[in-house]
Design a binder for these strands. Structure first.
Lengths: 340, 340
DNA sequence: CTGAAAGCGCTAACAT
DNA sequence: ATGTTAGCGCTTTCAG
């Protein structure tokens, strides 16, 4: 027995395809009598609706795609863990794509290629995309952007207040008596907005405390991973005047940085305090545990999905908005020896 | 301007839809003259093929789904990082689903539901699924299984030789002089095959070294995460006769276990040596770095995808096979103080 | 090498 | 409340 179709069900039940469709989709009201006739026929035939056919007829795929630069970055993995069930509950499947931060790949994804038909909307955390690239995208694509690419009014953007968060992080370092504070993770080029916001917070905290900023202590990295953190920390410690604290732009960077410090027999936080960003699980189990900025990841994921689905459902163009999730500072052992 | 269709292109180019289709898909040979006419028309109209329509016509979706219990488990994240590009290269999109190890969810996914039409095949790492559940699946679904569920001959299974790997891990602990060795992660129930294979290796290593196995040192856990590792280690250390080494069934478990040990001011590996399983990135950066069994994750991912695609392409039923990827022992600081 | 035409299975006007 | 029917846009057999 092959697959049976809606028409087969209609015939067996002695009704029209229209009625079967109504029963399956719960559209119009249907008599209890006909309903059970239809349901019986469905059971007998083992009928299941062909989603492909439905997609073509409705012009919607029931899928959304989530595009992240790296899937093995815990931050994105943790985000996906909320995004997927949330979307699922709203009736959407989730496709996942990783771009390796490659601009061309990202451009292709938001452009008007054939894959557009495969998803009704997209949540993207871009890395290589410039602001213009974003504006040149397929205008019919409902889009929600994570990270830092201020909205141009045609898509939504959800994130936390990075400047404020970074300021808090550095203020914390200052509050525990540190004065020579380094930053690891700046990206002083057009697509590095996210990083630059953190750098801005770094400066703001210094200014607020009337501390000078030693520009040479701001280290750039191309990515936000452990290897970058380890390398950058090595460079800092090689200096004649190493810092007494480091603000890392991600927990992975912090993890790498701490690794290097400990290898050199330095004590963290006594000799050098370290604070990260993202609050990934690793940071709660490492040695020392990593102080961090904890963005409300659940809120970010839910906001993104809700907003995207709203966009998909709307026929009118929706004005792009900036959505801010909460964040909080979580001091741990990498800044306070006896932290919880 | 709305979307233009293949028919529009045909009209503008003055050819039949059939010819356009040929050009787009590179099917039959087409005259250079007509080809360029068609290509010109495509460019003018900004035509892109409607994948939804193609899917209905061909009955294939061009998508495969990867089902894992937890997306935030680094092991799966790292696996996906290879699976996605490999599938992409072969022309398949990857859908991702997480089940939280929920049996019903897993059963539904492999069953004959409507979602079946959305993917041409599935790679699944089951947790709650019993061997019968697997056999009751939609028989038309090309399936590749990761982890430990020996094939019933209708699907492929790819993994490493867990017994051998576990044996090596424990042999390593013995080789550094440990005699009271604990195991964290056993799952002594029907769906815990993966864990049980490791336990088997644990015993085999003892036997080979003529060491007795202290059954009370084999600790069961429901999951393989950090929290479980931390709890189990606490229980072990609370005993009057704590072990001098622990074999953990995942690096996450090891990470949690080490966390507990260090909190209690024990030295790792001097007071208690720890070895993990999976070789996730965290283990290379923690303090101490974690000795581990490193499965060839790239090979696992590639084998799974290749095999699945082969299955999808074949009209005849394909006999299920067992595919073994390589693994190797990587000693690090958690067993050898001066490891690289 | 190209054209004509019949579906793929479902949805959704429109009609009753 | 249910039936009729015309597509959705592409693929593909069959002719020519």
């Amino acid at each position: 027995m092959g697959e049976s179709t809606l028409r087969d069900v209609a015939e067996l039940a002695g009704v029209s395809p229209r009625t079967v469709s109504n029963v399956v989709n719960g559209y119009a009201r249907v008599t209890d009598a006909t309903r059970s006739k239809v349901e019986h026929a469905i059971a007998v035939l083992g009928y299941r609706p062909n989603v492909l056919a439905r997609n073509l007829a409705t012009g919607r795929s029931g899928q959304i795609v989530v595009v992240v630069p790296y899937l093995d970055t815990p931050y994105f993995a943790e985000l996906l863990q909320t995004i997927i069930p949330t979307a699922r509950k709203a009736g959407y499947n989730v496709l996942v794509d990783q771009t390796d931060g490659d601009r061309d790949h990202e451009v292709e994804l938001i452009g008007r290629g054939p894959r557009r038909f495969l998803f009704d909307g997209m949540i993207i955390s871009p890395l290589g995309l410039s602001q213009e690239d974003l504006s040149l995208r397929d205008p019919t694509l409902p889009l929600v952007v994570l990270g830092e690419r201020p909205s141009d009014g045609t898509f939504d953007h959800v994130g936390i207040d990075d400047v404020a968060a970074a300021t808090e992080a550095v203020r914390h370092l200052i509050s525990i008596g540190r004065r020579r504070i380094a930053a690891i993770g700046d990206q002083p080029y057009p697509t590095g907005e996210a990083a630059q916001l953190r750098t801005r917070g770094f400066r703001a905290a210094h200014t607020a405390a009337s501390l000078p900023v030693d520009e040479s202590l701001i280290i750039s990295t191309t990515r936000f991973n452990r290897a970058d953190g380890a390398t950058a920390m090595a460079a800092l410690l090689d200096r004649p005047d190493p810092p007494d604290a480091v603000f890392c732009y991600s927990d992975l960077v912090a993890s790498g940085a701490i690794h290097t410090a400990l290898q050199r027999r330095l004590r963290v936080p006594e000799d050098i305090a370290v604070i990260g960003y993202d609050d990934i699980e690793d940071g709660r189990y490492g040695r020392p545990t990593i102080s961090t900025i904890s963005p409300d990841k659940k809120a970010i994921a839910q906001l993104a999905v809700e907003r995207l689905i709203m966009r998909i459902g709307s026929t009118e163009p929706v004005l792009g908005v900036e959505l801010r999730a909460a964040h909080r500072l979580i001091p741990r052992e990498s800044t306070l020896r006896d932290a919880p």
